[in-house]
């Protein structure tokens, strides 16, 4: 039980990661795959952010009288990763729009059927 309480941030992240990963693998709907991909990425962001916490540390803004700060570097890294994630999602959704125009569907099995019938 202590293990669960002391590691709850990791457990939540792993739980989210598996949900996202499973969605990407199992769903045939192209939009749902992108949703899954997003959940998967966000779980990684959570790992980074929770890593940066320093026990008893203040927010990393220089203030008089504060000795211990949390580590700001992972925040900066994840800010970059979020931007990358947004770009990926936008590109993925744009591709889904084009696929819908070209095939008239966004279900993977129907797209396969149309490609194979050619």
């Amino acid at each position: 039980m202590d293990f669960v309480v002391s590691h709850y941030n990791y457990l939540i992240a792993i739980f989210l990661m598996m949900i996202g990963f499973y969605t990407v693998i199992s769903r045939g709907n192209l939009i749902k795959k992108i949703v899954g991909l997003n959940i998967f990425q966000v779980s990684v962001f959570l790992i980074y952010i929770s890593l940066s916490t320093v026990k008893g540390g203040a927010a990393p803004i220089i203030t008089e009288g504060v000795k211990i700060y949390s580590n700001p570097l992972p925040h900066v890294l994840i800010l970059t990763a979020i931007v990358v994630g947004v770009a990926t999602t936008a590109l993925g959704l744009a591709l889904v729009v084009r696929i819908k125009e070209a095939y008239g569907t966004i279900e993977e099995d129907e797209i396969h059927k149309q490609d194979n019938s050619l």
Binding site: K33, L37, F40, T88, L95, V96, I99, A102
Partner: peptide, 20 residues
């Protein structure tokens, strides 16, 4: 060809998984 779109989408999903 329209298969280029699905190929790019598949690569996007797998490439992003790899990068993550």
């Amino acid at each position: 060809k329209r298969q280029a779109l699905t190929a790019a989408y598949q690569y996007l999903i797998m490439g992003t998984l790899g990068a993550t």
